[in-house]
Design a protein around this nucleic acid. Structure first.
Length: 194
DNA sequence: TAGCCCGTAAACAAGC
DNA sequence: CGCTTGTTTACGGGCT
């Protein structure tokens, strides 16, 4: 159905500057991701990030060019993305953060900074400056196994972004919508992780 | 202006 | 039967 598509139609803004205002909207590249999804093995619960740390089985998801920067992404989050909505600041990739900090807790990086920044920037009462894709990504990343059932994703979001607690329930629909739409998120058998 | 991305709403199906 | 989950479609707004 749609093999007619270069793996990377835009891959990544050639000029990092392009994604300025979207400094934090990298996780999805619907275009490619959508194509790459030809798999249909899993079929139950928990969602997990497709590429990132998984392995080869996600080859098809390789299209997740954005994930290849998963770590970078996170950094981006904590650094430029949220900091202060400052689009890019480290085009050179000059991350002052521990380069080899595998990820003691991405959450730390994400929430730590993200939350902080977010909190500082607006307060947990405001709509988070991240797209649903980002939120979902963070939630899953925050999970020990990199996978979370939908319910937990809701919970995670509510926990970290109280804004949604008082927000209309429509956001859940949006979450699910993103989950389905972005092939970046993959469904995995419940057996494997419950 | 056009195209792309995102958010939201809604409809529908399937499973529990 | 009702709720949750998953998928899909459509529309509008913002940004480049």
């Amino acid at each position: 159905m749609g093999p007619t598509m270069p793996p990377s139609k835009k891959a990544q803004s050639p000029s990092s500057g392009a994604s300025a205002s979207q400094g934090m909207s990298p996780p999805y590249r619907q275009g490619d991701a959508a194509t790459a999804a030809s798999e249909a093995e899993a079929s139950d619960l928990s969602l997990s990030l497709s590429a990132s740390f998984s392995k080869a089985e996600d080859e098809e998801l390789t299209s997740l060019s954005w994930l290849h920067e998963s770590t970078d992404l996170l950094n981006s989050f904590s650094h430029s993305g949220l900091r202060s909505v400052s689009p890019l600041q480290d085009p050179d990739g000059q991350h002052s953060r521990s380069p080899s900090s595998s990820s003691p807790s991405l959450e730390d990086a994400l929430l730590g900074d993200a939350h902080s920044a977010y909190d500082l920037a607006a307060g947990a009462n405001r709509k988070p400056p991240y797209s649903f894709s980002c939120l979902i990504f963070m939630a899953i990343e925050d999970a020990p196994n990199k996978r979370l059932p939908v319910k937990d994703i809701y919970g995670w979001i509510l926990e970290h972004f109280p804004y949604f607690a008082s927000a209309p329930t429509g956001w859940k629909n949006s979450v699910r919508h993103n989950l389905s739409l972005n092939k970046c998120f993959k469904k995995v058998d419940k057996d494997r992780s419950q």
